[in-house]
């Protein structure tokens, strides 16, 4: 029962919902689509988030109790989380000084202040760190060893120059040198135009082809889940 009931639910709901996009009657649109798929799934999703947050708290408490590894930082994580939860949910929205509110999530609240002054700068810096690692990885792997690697290197270079004002400056300078000559050789320095062409044609074609593959894979996996061939989502063996 612990395995067969969930497997039966997946099969039955899967088959029913396979036909939903093809049906336009009122019952399907109002109940099967809007009520169950949109509204009820949202509500169930809230409980899934409660589960994941509880799991995160339990993991940190476990690390602190057992003094595992860098358990001190689990305190930092828990205190940060508790602080944001307290100010957003439990504290009243009373004024704090001239332009601030103690509780709530509105603009001007402590919650909003911490988000803007601590969370956003740290997140942006984390992402910007990747610039260094991408540059380092590119140096090691981007050497023009063969035709394919050379093509990738040249395309990346053109796109990078085409997305900054330097590309336009080079093009304008070359256009000036070209003057009124009938042969417009300066067009090969039109990095913005070439970048747009690369994005519109080869890049779009590649994305489309990969997209087809991804969707085929997704459909195959969905069918395997529906028909009980793929059971790893059940977890455990019981």
């Amino acid at each position: 029962m612990k395995r067969s009931v969930p497997l039966a639910i997946v099969l039955v709901t899967g088959i029913i919902y396979f036909f939903v996009p093809f049906m336009t009657n009122r019952f399907t649109m109002d109940f099967l689509y809007q009520t169950i798929l949109v509204d009820w799934m949202k509500i169930m999703g809230v409980f899934a988030i409660v589960m994941s947050i509880t799991s995160l708290v339990r993991r940190n408490v476990y690390k602190i109790q057992r003094k595992v590894g860098d358990y001190q930082y689990s305190w930092v994580e828990l205190i940060g989380m508790a602080f944001m939860i307290t100010v957003s949910i439990f504290l009243p929205q009373t004024p704090l000084g001239k332009n601030m509110l103690l509780g709530g999530i509105r603009e001007g609240s402590v919650y909003d202040w911490v988000f803007s002054n601590i969370q956003v700068p740290m997140q942006a810096t984390m992402f910007s760190l990747l610039a260094f690692y991408i540059a380092s990885a590119a140096y090691r792997s981007f050497r023009a060893r063969n035709a394919e690697a050379t093509l990738l290197l040249i395309t990346a270079g053109i796109v990078m120059i085409g997305r900054v004002p330097l590309g336009e400056d080079i093009y304008n300078f070359m256009k000036g040198l070209n003057g009124d000559a009938s042969f417009r050789w300066s067009e090969i320095f039109n990095f913005q135009g070439i970048t747009q062409f690369i994005l519109d044609i080869p890049n779009a074609a590649t994305k489309r082809a990969i997209g087809f593959g991804v969707v085929m894979g997704m459909i195959a996996t969905s069918l395997k889940i529906m028909f009980g061939i793929e059971k790893s989502w059940l977890g455990g063996t019981e």
């Binding site: 009931v5 969930p6 709901t13 899967g14 919902y17 459909i219 969905s222």
Partner: peptide, 21 residues
Amino acid sequence: IRIPIALSLGIGSGYGISYSF
């Protein structure tokens, strides 16, 4: 926990197949 996961997976898979096609 498998019950709500089964509901989400079933609905998502069934709808996802025809919708993504």
